[in-house]
Nucleic acid binder design. Structure first.
Lengths: 191, 191
DNA sequence: CTTGCAAGCTACGGTGCCGTATCTTAACGC
DNA sequence: GCGTTAAGATACGGCACCGTAGCTTGCAAG
């Protein structure tokens, strides 16, 4: 019987992983210390020594989960940069962390404190949304009419990516992202 | 001690109402027969006599919940008809039934059978989506280029309504709906 | 008024999670 | 190697819900 008892950081990482997997699998309302401990093959005691509640454990796990990239506009090809920004979004949506985040956002109404903490500790440290960053850049350099940058037009890309994800049951692929840019965003910018 | 013991349809309606309220308040994963019985001020026995599980009870309750209206295009004012269609959507989104539906759709991944049954028993009986109905109508009468009616463009309105609902934390009002039509849908149609 | 049915009430054993306590034993620092 | 620390295992009383059973009682049809 090889024991291989885990300690410290290795153990914590395994618990974080188990917590996110549990979150995705059973939903926020059903995450339990017992469940996470079982999945991580450790004892409840170990969890309670570090975290006071499942929420704190989950926030900790999410904060460690790998971050979202930020788009870097190339300044000479709006269409390509928009596609690039939305592709960063769809790439991220395929990661395990995204599934965990959406499992929490789904319960927004029931657990506002958790959602708020999620933004404060995980999202806010980064900048604004994906296409917004690109559009601001092009508006600043005079290639896009700044009056076209409204609350609505800056949201079209993300809105359609989410809507298509729901309708299709999967994250949009490259050609679908291109269609969003060509058929919705660029026309809304007057191009 | 006035008794006023409810029977038959009156009782069933009260239970349906309690079930949806419970769903919205505690989330799909936490709906229990005991909870619904408590809220409806009746006995568990009464529930088990009629429904074998919380899912069947919820589906039943949703099927009874008041239906979604279908847009009737006026045929002479595209902008007004689009705004009308999206207003039907936002009106519905303010009803209790909508909150219940979204509580179920939020758990899509965890309970696909329930979501499927929801579509089969509640949504499919009605036609297509809101703006799609309007856009088809205008494309048929030659006032909109049919080539512009793609999977993406027909979803812009609904996509933005949902995205704004999430970002704002409330259902978009009349001026926001108008902005969606003017700044996103009409440009995408080439108008 | 009688009678049949269903609503309402109470109680049951079973299960899963809670949060804590106790004890062991493996891993690590020195 | 030796002692300290923390992981791991087990057990606890408490609680909420499960699904079922047995019984009382209001309601309504005849």
């Amino acid at each position: 019987m090889t024991s291989e008892r885990r300690r410290g950081e290795v153990l914590v990482r395994a618990i974080h992983e188990a917590a996110l997997a549990e979150l995705v699998e059973v939903g926020l309302g059903q995450v339990s210390m017992e469940g996470v401990a079982r999945r991580a093959a450790t004892a409840k005691t170990v969890l309670y020594r570090r975290w006071a509640s499942t929420h704190e454990l989950l926030l900790d796990a999410l904060a460690q989960a790998h971050p979202v990239e930020v788009p870097a506009p190339g300044a000479d090809d709006l269409r390509a940069d928009l596609i690039g920004a939305l592709t960063l979004l769809t790439d991220w949506m395929r990661t395990p962390a995204a599934a965990a985040v959406s499992a929490i956002l789904a319960e927004r109404d029931r657990h506002p404190e958790l959602v708020e903490a999620l933004y404060r500790r995980v999202f806010d440290p980064r900048g604004a949304t994906f296409t917004t960053t690109v559009l601001r850049h092009y508006a600043d350099s005079g290639r896009v009419d700044p009056r076209r940058l409204t609350f609505v037009t800056t949201q079209i890309g993300e809105a359609l990516v989410f809507k298509l994800s729901i309708d299709l049951g999967r994250v949009p692929d490259a050609s679908e992202v291109a269609a969003i840019v060509d058929e919705a965003i660029l026309p809304a910018l007057g191009l």
